[in-house]
């Protein structure tokens, strides 16, 4: 049952999905780094982006990958709007209240989608949806490969943006030393909005990348959200490279768990990993994060 072929296949699937987890988690990590908020609505925003991709495909026949040109910037702006309207006014609220704020946002968005579009599973299947090739004994589905590559490219681009541009440097300054950043004349409110916008943009891209091989439904963001929490805790809260590496680890753990365990017990592996890391390495496996 546990043959080498199966193992190889599990590794390939795990790595490919891991890239996407990495991108989703990068956005979550960035938001945490700058705003000090664990954003429960991250997955819900991704879900909205997947619906946007779906409707663009279903109504206007826009290719899911091409739709990123529209949804990416649109969700960046939506993220800024959410931050300005919902989160910024409460930035001095108690930590747990900020957490509940994003929880409320997640409940609202998820059920808004349920009210508007019902719970049906919808799919986006462009011509290349079933394209695949074999790598040794393992099957590689092209859309999954594209999703992983696209996610990694996007994450690296973001990394470059944070390192090289003035806005990026301001974001890092704010994450590291909020008061110092303010004293240096950084427009803190604007940078916070930009950070949330980038986080939303990340999940918009990730959402578009997964729709060719995933389904779209109101609660589709939940599983990505939980995965992103696991990844971010694993990689270290606010640690950007850690998020990308953590994505691959969680992707691998999930798909190896699926090979070894029957039914949906694979989720147990991920949750167990989550609890263990939270308990023993709350600052993340790679350090640099801020635990506890």
């Amino acid at each position: 049952m546990f043959s080498l072929d199966l193992l190889l296949q599990a590794v390939v699937s795990g790595v490919l999905l891991g890239g996407v987890y990495g991108l989703v988690a990068s956005g979550l990590s960035l938001i945490f780094g700058v705003l000090r908020i664990i954003n429960f609505a991250h997955g819900a925003v991704m879900m909205l982006a997947m619906y946007a991709t779906y409707w663009l495909f279903a109504l206007l026949h826009v290719d899911p990958y091409l739709s990123i040109v529209v949804t990416g910037p649109a969700f960046f702006l939506l993220g800024m709007l959410i931050q300005r309207v919902v989160i910024e006014p409460n930035r001095f609220a108690a930590e747990h209240n900020q957490l509940l704020l994003t929880l409320g946002l997640a409940l609202f968005l998820e059920n808004l989608a349920l009210v508007l579009w019902q719970g049906d599973f919808r799919t986006v299947r462009p011509a290349y949806a079933n394209a695949s090739f074999t790598l040794g004994e393992a099957l590689v589905e092209v859309p999954r490969l594209v999703a992983c590559a696209g996610a990694v490219v996007m994450a690296l681009a973001l990394f470059g943006f944070l390192r090289l541009t003035d806005v990026g440097k301001a974001i890092r300054a704010l994450a590291e030393e909020p008061e110092g950043a303010m004293l240096m004349g950084i427009d803190v409110g604007r940078i916070r909005a930009v950070a949330f916008g980038i986080g939303a943009g990340c999940v918009a891209v990730a959402g578009a990348l997964v729709t060719p091989f995933f389904y779209v439904a109101p609660d589709v963001g939940e599983s990505f959200n939980i995965m992103a929490f696991v990844v971010v805790v694993l990689g270290g809260m606010g640690n950007f490279v850690g998020a990308l590496l953590g994505g691959f680890i969680v992707g691998l753990a999930e798909s190896l768990g699926a090979t070894a365990l029957p039914g949906s017990l694979k989720q147990l592996v991920v949750f167990a990993l989550f609890v263990l890391v939270l308990l023993f390495r709350p600052a993340g496996l790679f350090g640099g994060g801020r635990g506890r």
Partner: peptide
């Protein structure tokens, strides 16, 4: 329409 109540809760 399912979900209206939870949406309002949010």
């Amino acid at each position: 329409r399912a979900g209206v109540d939870v949406m309002v809760y949010g």
